[in-house]
């Protein structure tokens, strides 16, 4: 697997980053987010791979539209049945974007700490961003996905059970990750998804402040409930590679926040108006 032809930001000098996208609760938007963030990073010039850790219930390949090109998967790679270049799938739309699919026929017990570490270390040689799409829960699959992460994006819906599960997974990140074992701080980001302003105003849905008050981690962004998400997944296109939409804009803002750059946005969209209004770019310490 040769280096990408397009110019990578920082020309490969910067250290690679492993970012886990996790939540605790299922169905809140982890895979959508992993694909969207991964694709956006790739579009900005970073060589990025999105890894599906949901062994047995894989979805990432569907969301990214490469389900028919899966020959080898993560488990094959760990067992040595195939090498990295045989297993990785290159996205047809975006130069810097790659996918490491999960196995559908096995389950999470097929993952071993040693095996995962070996694969991630190999990926670190090639990629600037490794986005790990975690399965739901707090057992083996989720633990594997978060164990080696440098940073975490905690995807949360503004409703009580999702918030409590996110709180739980934050506790797990603080105690069951390698960084915590080495007494290092893991940067955690809160991403609120499926947000509906009118329901918040009616008091039917938790507000951004409510969620922040309970979870006490810096806010990465707020993704509105959007028809664009279902359309994108039906078409097998990450939201950020699809047509312009409110969700796409919001994910783009979130990635800017993740990279620590202020996105120049003269035509303020829904998301940035909301974010600006709530002074969310001044992130409070955890």
């Amino acid at each position: 697997m040769g280096k990408s032809e397009t110019s990578n930001k920082d020309s490969g000098k910067s250290e690679s980053k492993v970012i886990v996208v996790t939540s605790g609760k299922g169905g809140v938007g982890k895979t959508t987010t992993s694909a969207a963030i991964g694709a956006e990073l790739a579009q900005r010039g970073y060589k990025t791979v999105v890894v599906d850790f949901d062994i047995g219930l894989r979805n990432l390949d569907l969301i990214m539209g490469c389900e028919r090109r899966v020959i080898y998967d993560f488990v094959n790679l760990i067992h040595g049945d195939a090498n990295l270049s045989q297993t990785l799938i290159k996205d047809k739309r975006c130069e810097n974007l790659f996918i490491l699919p999960a196995s559908q026929t096995r389950d999470k017990d097929a993952l071993t700490t040693e095996g995962v570490e070996k694969v991630l270390n190999e990926l670190r040689q090639e990629f600037q961003f490794i986005v790990c799409d975690s399965p739901a829960g707090i057992e083996r699959g989720a633990l594997m996905a978060l164990y080696f992460a440098d940073e975490a994006v905690i995807v949360t819906n503004p409703e009580v059970s999702s918030v409590r599960d996110s709180d739980r997974i934050i506790g797990v990140l603080n105690s069951r990750s390698r960084k915590s074992e080495q007494n290092q701080e893991m940067k955690k980001h809160l991403l609120i998804t499926r947000y509906m302003l009118n329901r918040v105003q009616k008091g039917e849905m938790l507000s951004i402040e409510d969620v922040q008050d309970i979870l006490a981690i810096p806010l990465l962004g707020v993704i509105p409930e959007s028809t664009a998400v279902l359309n994108a997944s039906n078409n097998g296109v990450p939201v950020t590679l699809d047509n312009q939409s409110d969700a796409k804009k919001a994910y783009q803002h979130a990635v800017s926040e993740l990279l620590g750059v202020k996105k120049d946005d003269s035509n303020q969209g829904w998301a940035s108006k909301l974010l600006g209004g709530l002074r969310l770019f001044s992130r409070s310490p955890a």
Binding site: D165, D167, R168, G171, N174, S175, D213, I214
Partner: peptide, 27 residues
């Protein structure tokens, strides 16, 4: 000194417990 997350149990044996932060539901 950090928030106590859902699912965590803290036991101060033989003494007091002081938490500087929030204590989540489920902890």
């Amino acid at each position: 000194t950090e928030p106590v997350r859902s699912g965590q149990q803290i036991y101060a044996r033989g003494g007091d417990l002081i938490v500087l932060g929030s204590v989540s539901q489920g902890s």
